[in-house]
Design a protein around this nucleic acid. Structure first.
Lengths: 128, 128
DNA sequence: CACTTACGTAAGTGATTGCTAACATCTGAT
DNA sequence: ATCAGATGTTAGCAATCACTTACGTAAGTG
């Protein structure tokens, strides 16, 4: 109805996918080892079809890979998808923290020591 | 309603917040400098109340900070919230995935795993 | 072939979401 | 106090979501 989205929104689908608690739990469950759909569903309170739909969502967003063996379908987290997601977040906010610190320095030069800039390692982790 | 710098928002709320395209756009808009609510709304196709609600969501999740001056409310992205979100993602998927990826590439030929990766042999599988 | 196992798919439902329009609140100036 | 500007808040609605039940599909076994 409104304007068009413009973005194909692969990143958006990923974000919406991991915004679901059950889907995040699934991702963690198959993070290091592949697991059959039924076995995954057995560890949740919801029914198997619900898990199946979650698996479909995760697979279509590239966060999960599927492998068929016999009548089973083995799922496993796809590191590439997760890396893509983190890359998107990193590109969205390149170094906002650093810029904020620079800005804070600029406006706080009213009272504190004017001795250059001081290290501010007490903030939250700045890694990654 | 008291609202100070108290990030009591869960990671899920943050994820759901940034899953919204308009909210992500707002975050990018006020990433480096603060902006009034009306001015933010003026850059979107939706109405001001809609933007106001988005601002409330972002503020309550700790992704945005508010500052009142006169009749205006100036918003700005909160780097601490963004860092918290990225820290959550990092903790959710440790480097295990990257190591697994490298491992998968290594064994994609034929070489067996140097480390025992098979431990959870719940259902029988033709370990081929 | 029938029968079972394992899984996806379709249809329907209650809850949530994002939006708009109208109303309320707060601030500063006349 | 009265007015005007800027913003938050409420009520209501269409769309989406996550879930369940029932059915369909595919692979293995007798």
């Amino acid at each position: 109805m409104g304007l068009e989205d413009g973005a194909k929104a692969t990143a958006e689908e990923m974000l919406r996918a991991i915004a679901e608690p059950n889907r995040r739990a699934i991702l963690q469950l198959v993070a290091t080892e592949e697991m059959a759909a039924g076995e995954i569903a057995a560890r949740f309170a919801v029914t198997r079809p619900a898990i199946s739909q979650h698996l479909t969502v995760l697979r279509e967003t590239g966060l999960l890979s599927e492998r068929r063996v016999g009548t089973r379908r083995l799922y496993r987290a796809r590191p590439e998808g997760l890396a893509e997601l983190r890359a998107f977040l990193a590109s969205m906010w390149p170094d906002t923290l650093e810029r904020f610190k620079a800005h804070a320095e600029a406006v706080s030069q009213a009272a504190p020591a004017p001795t250059a800039l001081k290290e501010r390692a007490s903030t939250e982790n700045g890694g990654d």
